[in-house]
């Protein structure tokens, strides 16, 4: 299925989206700037927390900042590449989604490539800056494995949040105006993944580890970087498992998407 000509087709679609954005330079610059500011303001919250206390859940400022940075970059990547899938209800209402179905490409592939939010580079860029500064300040005993982990984790985080975006956008196939539900898992997942998980209650912690795998985006990899074990008692190997978690999440999202699509074409109900 993923042959060279298919890749060329998607490539052409994404390039056309990028070209369309580049033609509005002034507004693009403003939006890029607000994305940078968004990260700064979110980060002020972390800063305010550590103005009051020296540690949160046993982690100091630099360590929580590492979590924040990993989460910001991962979420920014997902938001740039697939964040716009929450426009699905709009596409369904205007018939654009039917046009997707009339073309010889996967409907999900077309939905994902229907936009490419370059302005999120602002969020990703400032997330990287926070991450690098935080890593310099945190007490990491660098090994090749940890260096690899730091590079791979934001990508795995992007895949995990991307999977959450895709899985939750299928709400749009079932209810007309319930898209906001998705925010609890996408933006909610991003909010919570910037903090140490041991401050959360058991249910929330388990839900955002095993159902929505937000713990694998930043908290667990940070434990591995710091060489610490989870105060809440998760086994140590999970801290190194962001990549398999991302693959499982992607497969699950694909399955949920197919269920939603079957409902849309009327086979599932």
């Amino acid at each position: 299925m993923a042959d060279a000509t298919t890749a060329q087709a998607y490539n052409a679609l994404v390039r056309s989206r990028v070209a369309a954005q580049a033609s509005y330079r002034a507004s693009f610059a403003i939006e890029l700037g607000s994305q940078v500011l968004l990260v700064l303001i979110e980060f002020v919250e972390v800063y305010v927390v550590f103005h009051q206390v020296d540690a949160l859940g046993g982690f100091d400022f630099a360590e929580v900042a590492v979590m924040y940075g990993l989460s910001a970059v991962g979420f920014g990547l997902a938001d740039m590449v697939v964040g716009h899938v929450d426009r699905l209800p709009f596409y369904v209402r205007t018939g654009t989604f039917d046009a997707f179905l009339l073309r010889p490409l996967s409907a999900l592939g077309q939905l994902v490539t229907s936009d490419f939010s370059l302005r999120r580079l602002g969020r990703i860029g400032s997330g990287v800056v926070v991450l690098v500064i935080a890593l310099a300040g945190a007490d990491v005993d660098w090994t090749p494995a940890r260096a690899l982990l730091v590079v791979v984790t934001p990508l795995a985080g992007g895949v995990i949040f991307g999977a959450v975006f895709v899985a939750t956008c299928t709400i749009g196939f079932h209810v007309v105006e319930g898209m906001e539900f998705a925010n609890a898992f996408t933006y909610g997942g991003n909010y919570l993944s910037s903090f140490p998980f041991n401050i959360f209650g058991t249910f929330i912690r388990r839900f955002f580890t095993f159902v929505v795998p937000a713990a694998f985006v930043a908290y667990l990899p940070t434990l591995a970087l710091l060489g610490r074990s989870d105060p809440a008692g998760l086994p140590g190997w999970l801290s190194w498992s962001a990549v398999p978690a991302a693959l499982i999440a992607a497969a699950a999202a694909g399955w949920i998407w197919r269920l939603g699509l079957r409902h849309y074409v009327g086979a599932g109900s």
Binding site: V53, G57, F195, I199, I204
Partner: peptide, 11 residues
């Protein structure tokens, strides 16, 4: 709300 409160209680 649950997430926000958890962070505040952590502080």
């Amino acid at each position: 709300g649950v997430i926000k409160l958890s962070i505040l209680l952590g502080i």
